[in-house]
Design a binder for these strands. Structure first.
Length: 225
DNA sequence: GCGACAG
DNA sequence: ATCTTGTCGC
């Protein structure tokens, strides 16, 4: 899969923040019209020394959720972890892996925030924009904003509000389990994103593509230490 | 200045 | 994220 947009990565925090603001204007919020037949999940892991990261992107066919492709890539860590700048640390490796996909996915589920970000440009937005693929941020905790505890049952949700804006939803993807924090990445809106995340869950808290991507990078990390 | 803070 | 064992609950 070719990337639709490219830019340099060795930036100062100030330059990175300015880039986020500039790229934010390119994010689109209209959801895809047709059915989603191929959904991807991406995740990253670090080796114990912390200077290498491994990324994996897995694609599945819908509606049956059959595994189609598994691509991976290794890369050197080039950016520190600073809240609000996670994509500058993880996206390069994920892009390296994604470029090896033979077939472009119709949707990409990312481990992190989308619009629920201080400058409305989380990892999911960044990745969706560079690859020009509809994307959704599925985070395990909140970066910015506040929300009430959603109801106990699967499907229950509550708004994540930041600076008087609804930037995402806390969604119970499985009854009685901690919610996930969903926000649009690129080329989709919140209701559509929430529906897709719920439909991609297979009995676990995290949607299957991201859950399996996480297992994959964890295996890769152990296999090389 | 004091906390909060995706992975 | 990573460092780490057992343990409570369905």
């Amino acid at each position: 899969m070719p990337l639709a947009l490219k830019h340099r990565w060795n930036l100062s925090f100030e330059q990175a923040a300015r880039l986020q603001v500039r790229l934010r204007s390119r994010v689109r919020l209209s959801p895809p019209r047709g059915a989603i037949r191929r959904v991807a999940g991406a995740d990253v892991a670090y080796d114990s020394s912390g200077d290498t990261l491994v990324a994996a992107v897995l694609t599945y066919r819908l509606p049956g959720m059959e595994l189609e492709e598994v691509v991976t890539a290794r890369d050197r860590v080039r950016f520190p972890y600073v809240p609000g700048f996670l994509s500058f640390r993880e996206v390069p490796a994920i892009v390296r892996a994604a470029r090896r996909l033979r077939a472009k996915p119709d949707l990409l589920l990312c481990d992190g925030q989308g619009l629920a970000h201080p400058r409305r440009f989380g990892l999911a937005c960044h990745l969706g924009l560079l690859l020009d693929v509809p994307s959704i941020g599925v985070a395990k905790s909140i970066l910015v904003g506040r929300c009430r505890e959603p109801g106990f049952r699967r499907g229950n949700r509550s708004r994540i509000v930041h600076q008087d804006e609804v930037v995402g939803w806390a969604i119970r993807t499985r009854s009685g389990v901690r919610p996930v924090y969903v926000s649009p990445g690129h080329r989709c809106n919140l209701p559509w994103a929430a529906r897709k995340v719920l439909s991609c869950c297979r009995g676990f808290r995290l949607p299957e593509p991201v859950r399996q991507a996480h297992l994959e990078v964890t295996r890769l990390r152990h296999r090389a230490e």
